[in-house]
Design a binder for these strands. Structure first.
Length: 278
DNA sequence: CTTGTGTCCTGTAGGC
DNA sequence: TGCCTACAGGACACAA
C-alpha cells in the first residue's frame, strides 16, 4: 500500500521524467476517480498545461502546473502511477495523460478508491481539507519527541490508531506503523497516553528511521500486488521488514525467541512480537 | 473534542 | 470447476 516512502519514491522517479513535459491529451476512463472538480472540468483544466515540478505531502502526490494550478493524486490502497511510451497502458487504467515526447502517465486503480484533484491557484476545495489539516512530516526536523508526546498526552485510543491519524503523523500507514512500533518495542494495543517519555522518544526516532529506510529501499512491494515504481519495478524494503508479512515466524531481535503474532483490532490487522513489544 | 464503527470499492485467496 | 465469502485498508462521515 502506498505510504510515505512509496509516494516519495514515485515522486522522485516522476520528477525527472515529467518536469518540462506538456499535457497534450487527457482521457478520463472512469470518472469516479475524479475528486474535484467534475471530470470534464479537470480534463479541460489540465489540457495544454506544462508540468513544472512535483511535491509530496503525506501520502498525496502533487504535480505542479505552469499556470500555478496543481494536480493532486491520492493512491489510497491500490492506486499506482505508470510512466512509459504510448501504447503500453496498464490494466485498470482510470486516467491517462498523454504527454509531449510520445509518453503517457497512467493512473491505474483497481479498487477505484484513489482520487485525483485539480486545485486552482489559491482555491482549496473542501474535499482536500484532510490535506490542509495534516500534521508534520515524520521525516522532518519539526517532528520531535516533544511534539509526539504532546499529541499522545491524555489519549486513550491505542498507539497504533493514533499513529495512523494523519493529523498526528502524516504519511504513516499500516505497514510502517507496525514496523516503527516493533523498532520502538511498544505494543500496538497500548493506550497512546500510557507511553513513558523514553518510549515516546524511541517511537519518534523509530518512525523517522523506518520511513527513511523505506525510501532508501524504494518502498515495499509485498507479493505481486499493488505498489510498483512508475516503470514497473518493485520496491525492495519488503526484504527488511521485521514484523509485516512475518506472522508465525521467529522474532528477528537477537536472543528474543518470540514468535510474530497477527492480531486484528478495530478493523485492521497489526503484527508484533509479544516478547519484546510491551 | 475524543473514540469507535461503517462505508466506499473490487480483485484475489481460500473454503467447500 | 465454480460459486461464495472474507479480506485487503486509507480517509472520511457519522454516532455515542
Amino acid at each position: 500500500m502506498p505510504e510515505l516512502p512509496e509516494v516519495e519514491t514515485i515522486r522522485r522517479k516522476l520528477e525527472s521524467v515529467l518536469t518540462g513535459r506538456r499535457i497534450t491529451g487527457v482521457m478520463v476512463r472512469d470518472r469516479r476517480i475524479v475528486g474535484h472538480p467534475r471530470a470534464c472540468s479537470l480534463a479541460r483544466g489540465i489540457a495544454g498545461r506544462r508540468i513544472t515540478g512535483t511535491r509530496r505531502r503525506g501520502k498525496y502526490l502533487i504535480l505542479e502546473m505552469d499556470d500555478r494550478s496543481e494536480l493532486v493524486f491520492h493512491l489510497r490502497l491500490s492506486g499506482h502511477l505508470e510512466f512509459g511510451p504510448a501504447g503500453q497502458e496498464p490494466r485498470f487504467e482510470r486516467l491517462r495523460l498523454v504527454l509531449s515526447g510520445g509518453k503517457v502517465l497512467s493512473f491505474a486503480e483497481p479498487r477505484v478508491l484513489g482520487r485525483v484533484y485539480l486545485v486552482g491557484d489559491g482555491s482549496r476545495p473542501s474535499c482536500l481539507a484532510g490535506m490542509e489539516r495534516m500534521g508534520p512530516e515524520p521525516i522532518q526536523p519539526e517532528f520531535t519527541a516533544e511534539y509526539l508526546a504532546g499529541q499522545l498526552r491524555r489519549k486513550t485510543a491505542s498507539i497504533k490508531s493514533v499513529l495512523l491519524d494523519q493529523k498526528v503523523c502524516c504519511g504513516v500507514g499500516n505497514i510502517y506503523s507496525d514496523e516503527a512500533l516493533f523498532r520502538a518495542e511498544v505494543r500496538p494495543t497500548r493506550p497512546a497516553g500510557s507511553l513513558k517519555p523514553a518510549e515516546v522518544k524511541r517511537l519518534a526516532l523509530a518512525l523517522r528511521a523506518v520511513l527513511l529506510d523505506g525510501i532508501r529501499w524504494c518502498g515495499t512491494t509485498l507479493g505481486d500486488d499493488t505498489y510498483r515504481l512508475p516503470d514497473g519495478a518493485r520496491g525492495e524494503f519488503q526484504k527488511h521488514l521485521r514484523v509485516v508479512g512475518r506472522e508465525g515466524k521467529p522474532c528477528r531481535r537477537p536472543g528474543c525467541g518470540g514468535t510474530i503474532r497477527l492480531r486484528r483490532f478495530g478493523n485492521r490487522s497489526s503484527r508484533y512480537c509479544p516478547r519484546c513489544q510491551r
